[in-house]
Each structure stands twice: as structure tokens, then as C-alpha cells.
Design a binder for these strands. Sequence first.
DNA 1: TCTATTGCTCCAGAAGCTATAGGTTTGAGG
DNA 2: CCTCAAACCTATAGCTTCTGGAGCAATAGA
Lengths: 137, 137
Amino acid sequence: MYSIGDLSRRTGVKIPTIRYYEQMGLIAAPERSEGNQRRYEKSELERLAFIRHARDLGLSIDSIRDLLALSQHPERPCGEADRIASEHLATVREKIARLKKLEQELERIVACDGNHTVGDCYVIRALADHSMCENEH
Amino acid sequence: MYSIGDLSRRTGVKIPTIRYYEQMGLIAAPERSEGNQRRYEKSELERLAFIRHARDLGLSIDSIRDLLALSQHPERPCGEADRIASEHLATVREKIARLKKLEQELERIVACDGNHTVGDCYVIRALADHSMCENEH
DNA sequence: TCTATTGCTCCAGAAGCTATAGGTTTGAGG
DNA sequence: CCTCAAACCTATAGCTTCTGGAGCAATAGA
Ligand SMILES: [Zn+2]
Ligand SMILES: [Zn+2]
Ligand SMILES: [Zn+2]
Ligand SMILES: [Zn+2]
């Protein structure tokens, strides 16, 4: 049996975050000690590590809840799990594409050398006028 | 004089968002009609377009507030504006780098063909075990 | 037994909006 | 002038994923 602090140390998930995950239904409400403190079994450690890893990879709480539910049924087909993962990959790729456009524009914008006045500053002028941009964003 | 709806149509910023920007101090509280409705001058149109463009480029409300304050002083040196922009560019680059790592891992993870069981699913196993990952994230 | 550490619940805040509820004003057509 | 729909008002809550604090209770080691 682990206390919430043990769990936190072993998984790197902060204590309030663990309680938050409980509230969000990612982990079950655990047994309590006589003094009402949470006492976890070893299996919760793995579950929490799974959650942490999935969060680190950017999956949403909702997706993780679904994946955890699926993982309770090892005999079922895994199409749904694969769908969640590849949809997330698509989302990540979209974000990258969008950020790259921003990067391009910002690269042009910051070409101002910083040695003149605000009135002449390319940063300020470029922000005031989107038509100076090379692509949509 | 423009109503808030006019301003919204011309800048593409939604009405509640304009009110929110007023509350956040990005635009000044405008004059009011006899019936207490907001009436804007033309200059607010440009200011709002500036804000919108800067938001589209991912700048924070705080940064935008600073940039707007700077732009009121065209005779001052522009080093601060340039610093804000290049710091933001650095942030964007960090995000891209991080997302690319995620993309790599997710690409490997979704290599599962979806035609077997959850128990054998690479997606599920990879999420359960970060040591299967090739880099930190 | 004493006390430092850890844990409890509840609540608020961060970022940048967005939506809803319940009411008032405006402006165009009749 | 009158009516009525559209637009506007304020205030508040919700979204997402945590994070931190207040105020108090339990636990564990010396
Ligand atoms: Zn400059
Ligand atoms: Zn632009
Ligand atoms: Zn699979
Ligand atoms: Zn990993």
C-alpha cells in the first residue's frame, strides 16, 4: 500500500494532480486509512504511469480515459486505440504546421536590428499590417 | 463612430472578445451612447487589428499590452519591441521542437496495424512503458 | 509523547476566450 | 409615432489541465 506521496514520488505526478485525476475519473477512488488518507495498491502505480506517459505525449484526459477503458479488455480488437493514437498524431502534425508558419513570419518580423526608433520598427509595422505577411496564419 | 458589432465585423474579432480585451486593458473603455452602448472611433479599429494580428501570431495578451504601450512612443528606441518578438520566436521554436519529438514517438506508436487485440496492441504497450520510447519528452 | 511531515477538503487562479441568462437600446419599416 | 426584431448591456460561469494556498487532521520517527 502506497500513500499519495509515495505514488507521487514514484511516478513524478504531483499530489494535487493525482487527486485531480481521481476527480476526473482516470483513477478510481482508492481505499482510505482509518484517518481518511488515500492508500493505493501497486496496480495504481502502473495505471498512473500510463496516464503520465500519455499526458507527456499530449493526449487529452478524455482520450486517456478511453484508452484505459480499452486496456481493461485485452481480448478485444485494438482498432479504437489505434484510431485515438493516429488522430492525435494528426493533431500534433497540424500544430507543427501552424507553428512553422508562425515561425516563418516571426523570422521576417524580428529581422529588425533593434537600433532605431519605435516609429521605424519593423516589428511594430509588421504587426499593424497583416498584408506585409507572406502567408495566412 | 462604430458600434461594437461594426468593429467586430471589420476586424473579425468576436464581440465578447472585444469586451474581454477592454477588460484586460488592451483597448480603452470607449465612449457610450445615451443608452450605454459602446461607440468606437476609427483609431480603435487599427488598434484592434493590431491586437488581432499579434494574437494570430501567438503573442500573449501581456506582450501585446507592452507592444501597444511602446507604439505610443514612436521616438523611443525599439529594442524592447524587438526583444519581445524574438523571445516569442524562441518560444515558438521550442514548441516546434517539442512537438517534433512527440511526432516521432507517435509515428512509431501508431505503427500498429489495428488488426489484433488490445492485449497485443503496440499503442497500449508503448503508452504503458516509456522505456520503449527513443527519446525523452 | 512530541512534533515534523504528510495528508485532508475546499476554493481560487491561470490563459484566452465563449456562452448563457435576463434585461435594455436601437433603428428600420409601417 | 409605434412596434418589434436585432443588437447591445452586465454579470456570471464554463472550458482545460493543472497548481497553489488556507486551515486543519493524521501519521511516523525519535
Ligand atoms: Zn525594431
Ligand atoms: Zn500576418
Ligand atoms: Zn493496435
Ligand atoms: Zn515515452
